[in-house]
């Protein structure tokens, strides 16, 4: 991981191997099934590339986190599109490609993300990670596959603690499965009604990821500002830096 480490000036002689901001890992789980071919995948690639400067600007403006990006492209099988965490600063997004006749199996993608979030794979000091699931269709996992993958993800402390957001491309993609991935029915699935909406939803998601990662942030207020009225948001959903 190409982490920005502040070198220790010789005069300072601080013990240890240097200091740096706390990592904030963002893992994008992008649907690359056959249904995404054409305009949708192009719009998604454009939108993800467009989201990065927003995250980079936030990283620059705050005092706590250094943002790292990873991406999983999933269809019938998942694969790492960006395996090793890449600092968001200066990232160049390599376009995703759809898989011809590929299905929308989400469970294996969750399991792959879980591997990356296992103890020892993610820094102990990392801020709670963010998982961003983007799909245009319903999960096509074989029976039990979705639940098994989600169970694997939630079995990891970092997976369970992660901020999990989902963007449905098209109303038809807004499913109970996405709500279960988010893990709290009061957090909305972000719906992009058209390919033009994808960029807006991703920017909203990136804002959510960034603002909610800030220590002491009023997460309910962030949610209200981004996603509308918050009658349903329990105060504890986005709390952090507090008691168990």
């Amino acid at each position: 991981m190409a982490e920005h480490v502040t070198p220790l000036a010789p005069y300072s002689r601080m013990p240890g191997g240097g200091i740096s901001r706390r990592p904030l890992h963002v893992i994008i789980l992008a649907d690359c099934s056959g249904g995404m071919k054409g305009e949708k995948i192009q719009a998604l690639n454009f939108a993800i590339a467009d989201m990065m400067p927003h995250l980079e600007a936030w990283e620059h403006d705050q005092e706590q986190a250094q943002v790292f990006i990873r991406a999983i492209a999933f269809a019938t099988e998942p694969r790492w599109h960006i395996r090793d965490p890449v600092p968001v600063a200066g990232i160049r997004w390599k376009p995703l490609q759809p898989v011809a006749k590929g299905l929308t199996n989400m469970g294996p993608a969750f399991a792959l993300a879980a591997e990356a979030l296992a103890p020892g794979q993610i820094e102990r000091r990392a801020l709670r990670p963010a998982l961003l699931l983007i799909t245009d269709g319903l999960a096509t996992d074989p029976p039990g596959g979705f639940e098994a993958g989600l169970g694997t993800l939630l079995a990891q402390p970092a997976g369970r603690a992660a901020l999990r957001l989902s963007i449905a491309i098209g109303r038809d993609a807004q499913s109970d499965a996405l709500t279960r991935f988010i893990g709290d029915p009061t957090v909305p699935v972000l719906v992009a009604d058209s390919t033009e909406d994808i960029a807006d939803r991703l920017v909203a998601a990136s804002l959510a990821v960034s603002r909610m990662s800030e220590t002491g942030a009023d997460r309910g207020a962030v949610m209200r500002r981004l996603f509308g009225p918050a009658e349903g948001f329990p105060p504890g959903v986005f709390d952090q830096d507090t008691i168990i």
Partner: peptide, 21 residues
Amino acid sequence: FGNAQSSASWQGEVARDIVAL
């Protein structure tokens, strides 16, 4: 303090350096 340390094995590095200092 610990959350600022870049290294995963910072405790050992800090100890080593304190002895040297």
